[in-house]
Design a protein around this nucleic acid. Sequence first.
DNA 1: GGTAAATATTTTAATACTAAAATATATACC
DNA 2: GGTATATATTTTAGTATTAAAATATTTACC
Lengths: 154, 154
Amino acid sequence: MRQSRDAIRAWLDLLGASNAIKKSVDTQLRSDFGVSISRFDILSALERAGPDGLRAGVLSQQLMVTEGNTTQVTAPLIRDGLVKRNTGRDDARIAIFTLTKKGERLFSKMATDHNHWIGTVFSDLSKSELAAFRRILRKLNIPGSTAQPGKDAA
Amino acid sequence: MRQSRDAIRAWLDLLGASNAIKKSVDTQLRSDFGVSISRFDILSALERAGPDGLRAGVLSQQLMVTEGNTTQVTAPLIRDGLVKRNTGRDDARIAIFTLTKKGERLFSKMATDHNHWIGTVFSDLSKSELAAFRRILRKLNIPGSTAQPGKDAA
DNA sequence: GGTAAATATTTTAATACTAAAATATATACC
DNA sequence: GGTATATATTTTAGTATTAAAATATTTACC
């Protein structure tokens, strides 16, 4: 099983890089804007959705988290006036989240910085290396994983 | 900033793959052995350390977590008889963790399966693709990250 | 040998996450 | 029109995580 030992090394490298990038982004978002990466992900999804916002269930699906998680992470964003929660007019069971003006303004600044940070992380890779990297990631056989990510974005 | 958009895509792919693999491993470890990936990481580090075990601080460093985390994640392992906690004989401040016989037996089974799962994840990559993948990961510029991972292993 | 400082770990308070139970509302069928 | 079922979300209980405060013990120095 020589193959499996190299695979373990690759997995540890992958996990380490992912953890380190995430930690770095989270630290910067918190110190510069007072927002965690989880909250940033929500703001990002709502920004993309525009004025119609997103239903709780759709938001959860996009971020690949449970609905309970969405309820809890939106709570402080609502408390801080970055997100508004409305109830569907036809169906009172439905919760619709949208960005407030304040949320839009803050997210816009965050997105600029976030894009720049991530650009820097990959800045030493050539265009073809970046493509090769993504191609290899798509070749991984991950049990129970039909498709792609969903979390984090800008 | 075309470059930054592709970088974001690569980051989302990287994060998605990492999350999905971790989730898959965690789910399998829990259902087959009743142990989470966090606890598995501790057992793995202690197995590697052998009969002398590891001090709390060293264990924390190796897993790249806080000492408080180590205290809490070892607690159920001790409760379940997989790990033993001893106090240093010269210095009573020191906590030394070792695997029990039961812990060794369980970890041995877990490691076999874990290696196989990870081998499968990377099984569609050629030897050179695997090497290219690791080389690219090492070329990433991650702020505040001097070196490599630390977590998870077998 | 007693106090101050240093060291090692644990505890506490907060965030984030899941799975499962609970709640609220709407729909369907009799 | 009333009850059962289905749907959408929230709440609860448990695990994992960090940062900062608290505790325990040793070391150093007067």
